[in-house]
């Protein structure tokens, strides 16, 4: 039972990380109609920025905080130089150009930080465990991710549903021409949304870094998962992205934590430990296919 509880928490933690990544992606797609494959590069660069700043300042928290404005600046630059020219194009151009961006950023990281993976060591305050229930220890850092992730998710919900900017974002998502016609500086709004997405991706990247370690292309595979999440949730829907991220997080963790033991009953233990993670990955894609067959625009997507 305790093991089960811990795994559910791990699933929530993973789900929140993926939600942060997916939220930026779904905002950018919902409002600017841009397929941004390079969103995973922002995730990766957020982590690398944090690594560098942590080296300079010697502080984990300070380094993480400094990485956010850096990611914002990067996002704004990418928007101004490239993304903005793509909004009026079709999806194929988006795929091609942002695929080029991925290649560029991956090589850039190799040039600037070297090909070897890097790791971030946690400060002692975050490295231990805390008791989430009396006598049930849980890694402090993972718990911190859940707290930060939940706070950011709540902040995002507040921003989108309760503020003027959020109102403009929602209006932009349903009819951007009308918003522009009403005198809103839509270009500035687009840049802001892109920058917000970059910050969210960087938060996800730098929080994941101590667990998964930094490597070139670390954002690429998780990006595909983030796309799966926004497609399941319905593109443009933050609520959908949140629910889908939670479900995908749980599916992934169940596959990793419980499947190997089940499989070991029917196959050799080495075969089981190879097969289990891929079965859980496969399950995520099957889930997505099933959702799309049932609802071709995702759970909360706008019907066409």
């Amino acid at each position: 039972m305790e093991y089960f509880l811990l795994q559910v928490l791990n699933g929530i933690q993973l789900g929140l990380l993926m939600f942060l990544l997916a939220a930026g992606l779904t905002l950018v797609f919902g409002i600017m109609d841009l397929v941004n494959l390079a969103h995973g590069s922002l995730y990766m660069l957020g982590a690398y920025f944090a690594w560098t700043f942590m080296g300079w300042t010697g502080s984990f928290v300070l380094g993480a905080l400094l990485a956010l404005p850096a990611a914002l600046a990067l996002g704004v630059i990418v928007e101004l130089v490239i993304a903005r020219r793509l909004y009026a194009r079709d999806h194929l151009d988006h795929v091609l150009a942002t695929f080029g961006l991925i290649l560029f950023f991956n090589e850039l990281v190799r040039v600037l930080w070297g090909p070897a993976g890097k790791s971030i060591t946690l400060p002692p305050a975050l490295a231990g465990t805390i008791d989430i229930l009396p006598g049930v220890p849980y890694p402090t850092y993972r718990f911190a991710i859940i707290v930060v992730g939940a706070v950011v998710a709540l902040f995002l919900a507040w921003l989108v549903t309760r503020t003027r900017i959020g109102m403009l974002i929602r209006a932009g998502a349903s009819n951007r021409r009308m918003v522009a016609a009403l005198g809103v500086n839509i270009e500035l709004l687009f840049t802001l949304v892109f920058g917000l997405g970059a910050i969210l991706a960087a938060i996800a990247g730098l929080m994941a870094a101590p667990i998964v370690s930094l490597k070139i292309g670390m954002g690429d595979d998780i990006l595909i998962l983030a796309f799966v999440i926004i497609v399941i949730g319905g593109i443009g829907s933050i609520k959908g992205a949140f629910i889908a991220a939670m479900v995908v997080g749980q599916v992934d963790i169940i596959g990793r934590a419980f499947l190997p033991d089940l499989l070991k009953k029917v196959m050799s233990s080495s075969a089981a430990s190879t097969a289990a993670p891929s079965i859980s990955q496969v399950a995520v894609y099957v889930l997505m296919a099933a959702v799309l067959v049932w609802r071709p625009t995702g759970l909360f997507g706008q019907r066409q």
Binding site: F29, V35, H91, V95, I224, F227, V228, V231, I235, T274, A275, A276, P277, S278, I279, Q281, V282, Y285, V286, M288, A289, L292, P296, T297, G298
Partner: peptide, 21 residues
């Protein structure tokens, strides 16, 4: 649209992970 792009990608990833497994 994007759903088609992503579902074709998802099916390819599915086979990819079967290969890995």
């Amino acid at each position: 649209g994007l759903y088609f792009i992503m579902i074709t990608l998802a099916f390819a990833q599915l086979v990819f992970y079967v290969g890995v497994g």
